[in-house]
Every structure is written in structure tokens, then in C-alpha cells.
Design a protein around this nucleic acid. Structure first.
Lengths: 336, 336
DNA sequence: GTGAAAGCGCTAACAC
DNA sequence: GTGTTAGCGCTTTCAC
């Protein structure tokens, strides 16, 4: 079954043309007679011919590959297993494919610190999509400075020399908070690390909504890691220490919200009657949780498309800007 | 900042040696004097030199890339967003990296039907890891027959010409069921499509446990798609149509279990008092759900390692066999 | 409209 | 222990 791999020269011989004609025919170069083109293409299909991408890449100095780097914060327990991150990667994968590129899934383990050298100079990929500003802004800056075509998923408001695509986190935080206030909550808890760029924006929205609403609510910030476990522990400790002194929670992610929800339910605090909750991300679990979780939906699909578009535009030498993607508050049982 | 890319010849010149010596030095070939090696390596680091992988791959006929193909069943709504699938991919990614390979994330969209031609002949990857036997067993068979180094995540009991790694699904189904019976449940529902290879095995374990246990329980099969939504709808319909005529559920996945759980809670059926549930996969949500979900944990980490090991062994010309990974029942609140 | 041939950057066989 | 050189398979310039 395992026959020798056909190379372009072999195919050309079979078709009775030169390699150059065969090459042009396969690439549908209109300079070649229609009939010749079809003839070669037919033979290629018949013999399951595939171009050797290694040779082609060497010749063209182009890989048709985009590398996606998962770039988590150094001091977080949040892992690559996080459902939201994986959703982002999956959406990027689709967007990349749709533009005819392949996706090299990567992380700092393989790439080390010199991303430009590893991916671009090393001809592993034509461009980089970095998911998360987190761990090493340094690496991103350096790669961009060295001329790596590069886009980042993160907080678009962060000043940068490269395009950042992400949600309008400020509006997300604002809307979630305003919604809770309008539902009658007044003692609000923000759950998340406000030092993180995207979460900081959400927190700003949270505070501004509290400012804007009458009557004024009371705010409290619980700086925790972006994990269910951290939220669960934090809420448990808070209830044990101070009792129930809040009636609304804005969580920085759905996983965090669900961790909080679990702690509340275990202590027989009713959601949404005693405490209303809104999460962030609108992961699949938000809908399946009981009570179902209200959440600020991030449009990862559109963001992925934008990331890829901007990256390909860079490859064409165009300048690109950061861009915010609009969010949408999805109201479910946990907040009303 | 964007200087001309250094090639090996340039580096060699800088080091005052020939390209062959430079090449050997970079690859730590012991035939080169220690001192020369260090000298070249130092310069390489200093100038951020990276080998052109395209050239290297062309020359070596080896890519150091492994392609992972997400191969979902054609008639399922289960998507690449499924948390368990993504966990598998993420674990494979780590295992692949640890062995010094890169991961090309793929799907039938890019690869088409001729995987051997596309990936192997096309020199995109040295081998394939197929996640799921699902959609097109045909494609897998053909690729294997054409000599593609290939391993599959799926049901290891399926007869095949390629190695399949997966959980001992039979034991998983058996243990979950026996556990429910021992907890006092006797009218059991199996939730999932028994036509699917892995789930079929779990169902066989389910039935055998019911056979083995005294007093005998009653079994019912609800063939549904592997999604929360399908489970939610199915349980709702069942309760509406027949009332609560069961007291235990073995679900084919945690997502399915959580969908069922939601339907039960909405109708005020108490879990675990009225109905006990065990899921499958032990995804992160199982622990955060309320009540927390008992589940059969699949050891994806070990499986990923085995998949990669077997694939690399194939690349070395060794024959490989299918292998089962042991599972573990994690008992939480939903079943006791 | 098609063909001949150069060359992308690397590795390894062979020469010394 | 190191250097010279052929050649991996493709694309494209230049020639006809």
C-alpha cells in the first residue's frame, strides 16, 4: 500500500509536461492553457499527489501557518484547561482555517522567550496570535519590536505597539453591575483580581455603575485568583468571618461565579433571592447551572475573526489598531 | 530593530568555521571539539539565531510536528467546545511538547479526506493523533493503510489496524452502576447513545452490573446525543410523560449528567435523595456543581502520554497495540 | 503557452 | 576535527 511519494517532477512526467508547467497548473496559474491545467489537476487527484510543504515553504519563505501561544499569567492557577480559554482557541482555530492557514498550537514551553526567533526566523509560522497579555508582556513587546507579525487577545485599552483585540470589558462590568442594582441589590461584591488588565476594566465599570446609580450602593472588592476554587474558598471565608453582608456579586468569570454559587448554596444562601450573581464569559455551563447563571457574553467568534484578519493584514504590510468587541449581558435566573 | 535574518552560513562566518561545523556544533554533535561547539552556540544565542525549519525539514524529510485531528461524529451536536475534548487536546499538547514535538491543530476542514496525502506526503507532520473514532472511521482506515503513523483516542476494544488508546469504559460503566445499586438505587437510567463505541462499552458495563447485583435492578436506556441540552430535554420529557419512575442515572458524560441534573432540580426532584447520579469524565465542573457530581474519571493525562509514546514508537518502526487506561470512580454528593 | 535552470538554507557523505 | 559540496523538492525568472 505504501508506495513511494510522488514528487512534482514525477507528476509532471506522468502528465507529459515540465515541472514548471505542473507547478503552475496546480496553482491554477491562468498563464497555462485551461486544458493543460485540468489535465495536471486530474492526475494529481488520481495519484493523491500533495506538494511537499517543506520545499514549498523554503522556496516561498512563507509557511501558511499561524502560531497560537497560550500566555497565562505567571501567578495564577488558571490553566489551559479553563473552558473559556479553550473556547477562544477553538474559535481562533476555525477563523484561521477559514482563511486557509494552519494552526500551530504553542506555549512558552516550546517557544522559550524569543518568539520572533523561534517562530518567525525559524520559519515555523508567518505570524503569532497571543492569547492573554498575562505572563510575559516582555515577550510580546520584544517579539513585536523585532518585527514579528503579532496580535493579542486581551484588553484593547492597554497602550501597545501591536493590535489587541478583546471585549469592551468596561461596559461589561458596568452593565452587569447596573443590572444587579436595578434588580434591587445594593451591597455589591466584585470577585476577581483587579490588577489583571481585562478584569481591571471590568472593575472600573463596576465602580462607575455604583457611582451612577441612585440610591448609592456599597462596594467591596475581593481580590482572588481566576479559579472556581479560589472563589469558593473566598466566599466561604467571608461568610464564616463576617456573615452575609452582601446581596450581589459581580464575578470576573463564570468559573469564579460558579465557585461562589456553590459556596452560597452550601450555606443555604438563596440565589437569586438573598444574593444575585452575574458572571463573565457566558461559557456553556452558565446555561446548565442551577440556577442558571446570568453572564456577560464575550463574542469570541467575532474576536477570533478580527484577530486573524488583523494578523493577515499585517502580513500584507498594513498597520492595524486595537479593537474592542461589543459584549452582551445574558440575563438568567441567578440575577432576577 | 528588524535586521536581516541570519542564516547558518552567516553564523558560520561569524564563528570563523564552515557551515557544516556550525551545523554540527548547533546539534551538539560530539565529533566537533567541545570548545568549537560552545563558541558557535554562544554566538547563536548572542545573535538570536534560529535554524530555518523549512530548509531543515526539506533536507531531513522530517518535520518534528505531530498533527492532532479532532474527529467528531457526524450526527452529533457535540462540538469542539466540549470541555472534555478540549482537555484531551490540552493534555496531548503537553505530552507532545515534552517529547520535543510541535502540535499542529487540525480538523477535516483543512485536511480533507486524504489524511496521509495531506499530512504525511505533504510533509506537514510526521504522524497523526486522531481524537475520536467518530465521524469517518473510513478516513482513519485509509490513512493507516497508506502507511501514516497514526494513533487514535477512542475505544481500545475496537478491532483495528492502528493503536487505539482510551479508558476502560466497560469497567467505568460497571463501577458507576454498581455504586448506584449499592447506594440503594434500583431503577436505573442509562443516558447516552449506546451506538457510539466508547459509550457502548459503558452501557455493557451498566447492564452487566445490573445482572450481577442482588436484588436485581430495573434498567432503561435513553439514547440521546452527547450534550447537556439533549439530556435536559430528554429528562424533562420523561418526567412530564411518565413521572419519576427511576432513582438512579448513569450518564455517558458529565455534560449530559449536568443537563439531567438541571432538569431534575427544576422539577424539585432531590439529588441524591430521590435520584442518584453518576457522570463520566470528571471535568472541572463536576466538582463545582451543586450538588457536586460523582463521576468516572478518565485519566487523560496518562492516555495522552501513551498516545504520543505509541506514535513515536511507530516512527521508529515498532509495532504498537491498543491499550486501555484505568479509570477511577470519584464519589461526590450526587450519588450518596 | 511551455521549458530549463537557478536557488531557497540546511545536513551529511566524503575528503583531508 | 573540520571543510567542500551535492541535493532535498519546490517556484519563478528568463528564454524561446
Amino acid at each position: 500500500m505504501e508506495q513511494k511519494k510522488l514528487k512534482l517532477a514525477d507528476l509532471a512526467k506522468l502528465a507529459g509536461v515540465s515541472t514548471s508547467t505542473a507547478s503552475r497548473a496546480l496553482n491554477n496559474n491562468p498563464v497555462i492553457k485551461q486544458q493543460t491545467r485540468e489535465h495536471v489537476q486530474l492526475l494529481a487527484k488520481k495519484y493523491n499527489f500533495s506538494l511537499n510543504t517543506a520545499a514549498s515553504r523554503l522556496r516561498l519563505q512563507k509557511t501558511n501557518v499561524i502560531a497560537v501561544i497560550i500566555n497565562l499569567d505567571a501567578h495564577t492557577e488558571q490553566s489551559i484547561d479553563d473552558p473559556f480559554l479553550l473556547k477562544v482557541v477553538s474559535d481562533i482555530n476555525q477563523a484561521v482555517n477559514r482563511r486557509g492557514y494552519e494552526l500551530l498550537l504553542s506555549n512558552s514551553y516550546m517557544a522559550g522567550d524569543d518568539w520572533h526567533g523561534y517562530f518567525i526566523d525559524g520559519r515555523r509560522a508567518d505570524g503569532l496570535i497571543v492569547v492573554g497579555q498575562g505572563k510575559q508582556q516582555q515577550n510580546i513587546d520584544t517579539a513585536a519590536k523585532n518585527g514579528a507579525p503579532l496580535v493579542v487577545w486581551g484588553d484593547p485599552k492597554t497602550p501597545s505597539n501591536y493590535p489587541i483585540v478583546g471585549s469592551n470589558n468596561y461596559v461589561g462590568g458596568y452593565q452587569a453591575t447596573m443590572h444587579l442594582l436595578e434588580q434591587g441589590a445594593s451591597k455589591l461584591l466584585f470577585l476577581g483580581d483587579s490588577g489583571h488588565a481585562e478584569i481591571g476594566e471590568r472593575y472600573r465599570g463596576f465602580n462607575n455603575a455604583l457611582e451612577a446609580h441612585q440610591p448609592k450602593g456599597v462596594a467591596k472588592l475581593l481580590k482572588i485568583d481566576i479559579t472556581s476554587q479560589a472563589a469558593y474558598t473566598a466566599i466561604n471565608n467571608l461568610l464564616r468571618g463576617e456573615g452575609l453582608n452582601f446581596d450581589g456579586i459581580v464575578a470576573c468569570s463564570d468559573m469564579v461565579a460558579l465557585g461562589a454559587l456553590k459556596a452560597l448554596k452550601e450555606r443555604y444562601v438563596s440565589v437569586p433571592n438573598d444574593v444575585r450573581i452575574v458572571g463573565f464569559d457566558d461559557i456553556a455551563m452558565a446555561d446548565i447551572s442551577h440556577p442558571s447563571l446570568s453572564s456577560v457574553k464575550q463574542n469570541t467568534r467575532e474576536a477570533a475573526k478580527l484577530l486573524v484578519d488583523k494578523l493577515l493584514n499585517q502580513l500584507n504590510g498594513e498597520e492595524c489598531m486595537s479593537q474592542e468587541v461589543e459584549i452582551e449581558l445574558v440575563c438568567r435566573q441567578s440575577s432576577q
